[in-house]
């Protein structure tokens, strides 16, 4: 009902100012149509509202705070009152060789975890799918899901213990082979394999759920048809299962690429040592040490913004490549 005065006002100006009429009329018509639509379908808009409000409140409003990346931010003064400093924080970052090293490490660790970590849940899902005995399958699944529910602190403890030079299982095993114990967690060259490996160990099982769901969604008659056509289980996996879940794989890959710059930094904080900074220090840990520990929120925001922009470019690129090559895309 509130639309009525607005539209009549629109028509009034339309009459008094014929010059603007041409541009105003379609606009007005559109508004009127929108109002009609709203009156008819208001339930749908009501249902939409919580989502819109959620987005505005929790995603768009915080973006307002990104501007502190360009300000000399003081919590007490607030965002608006803090003075602008332009690109100063970015200059500080890019003039810092440790930041550049962190960027490099972030990219390397992410890329390696993507290369080695991404296929593992798919393999797991395919393997689970081949287990016919239901109880055995469920047991296996539970076992590999389990690490996901262990807190990062415990995971770090397990990793530290496992790689301990005196009592760790890894050194015990290589000791049998006659190799001297290695203090893995202080060796820069071992940090990435250990970090990526423990990440895979923790998450691969749980991540396989989505691929299992995709496999479960494959029409069973495709397999029956293939059986009649004479396909072996191996051929069915390659020619039916994998192509059928390819859209899921690609979507997950795009999402992973979007998170490429987000390295699980809690685990790094718990596992790294000054001795391994050269391979372990990522953007997030750098920010943690540099910014948050000493309250430099503006600098941290600048680094975070840089991170986000890179991630955005990556995900856009991955999406458009995928759209062109495989006809699958997030949007």
């Amino acid at each position: 009902m509130t639309d009525l005065p607005a539209s009549s006002a629109g028509s009034a100006t339309g009459v008094s100012e014929p010059a603007t009429r041409a541009t105003e009329k379609p606009m007005r018509e559109r508004l009127v149509r929108l109002a009609d639509h709203f009156k008819r379908e208001w339930q749908i808009y009501v249902m939409l509202a919580p989502m819109i409000i959620w987005f505005l409140l929790f995603l768009y409003k915080p973006m307002y705070g990104l501007q502190i990346a360009f300000k000399d931010y003081s919590i007490f003064r607030g965002i608006v009152e803090s003075p602008w400093v332009g690109w100063e924080h970015f200059e500080t970052l890019f003039n810092n060789s440790q930041f550049l090293r962190a960027v490099k490490n972030t990219v390397i660790i992410s890329a390696l975890s993507l290369i080695f970590g991404f296929p593992v849940p798919i393999f797991l899902a395919l393997m689970f799918n081949e287990i016919l005995h239901a109880l055995y399958r469920r047991t296996c699944q539970t076992i590999v899901y389990l690490p996901h529910f262990i807190s990062t602190v415990i995971i770090a403890g397990i990793v530290i213990t496992a790689f301990s030079p005196s009592a760790g299982i890894v050194n015990t095993i290589i000791g049998w082979l006659g190799i001297e114990p290695v203090y893995f967690l202080t060796k820069p060259e071992w940090f990435r394999p250990i970090f990526i490996g423990s990440g895979i160990w923790q998450e691969a099982g749980f991540s396989s759920i989505i691929f299992l769901a995709a496999i479960a969604g494959v029409n069973p008659s495709l397999y029956e048809s293939a059986v009649v056509d004479g396909a072996s289980r191996w051929q069915m996996m390659w020619k039916i299962t994998i192509p059928s879940i390819m859209p899921t794989i690609i979507i997950m890959l795009i999402i992973r690429i979007g998170n490429l710059m987000e390295v699980g930094f809690e685990l790094i904080i718990l596992l790294y040592q000054p001795a391994t900074y050269q391979t372990a220090d990522v953007i997030n840990t750098f920010i943690y040490r540099q910014g948050l520990q000493s309250g430099q929120y503006d600098l941290a925001a600048a680094a975070g913004l840089f991170n986000a922009v890179v991630a955005f470019v990556l995900v856009m690129t991955a999406n458009s490549i995928s759209k062109r090559v495989s006809r699958t895309s997030l949007w």
């Binding site: 202080t186 040592q273 001795a275 600098l299």
Partner: peptide
Amino acid sequence: DKYWPSIRTYMLERQQAWIL
């Protein structure tokens, strides 16, 4: 703020490397 965190990081890296 500009110099110290990086210096500290560098000092600790060298320190552990030497000890190890």
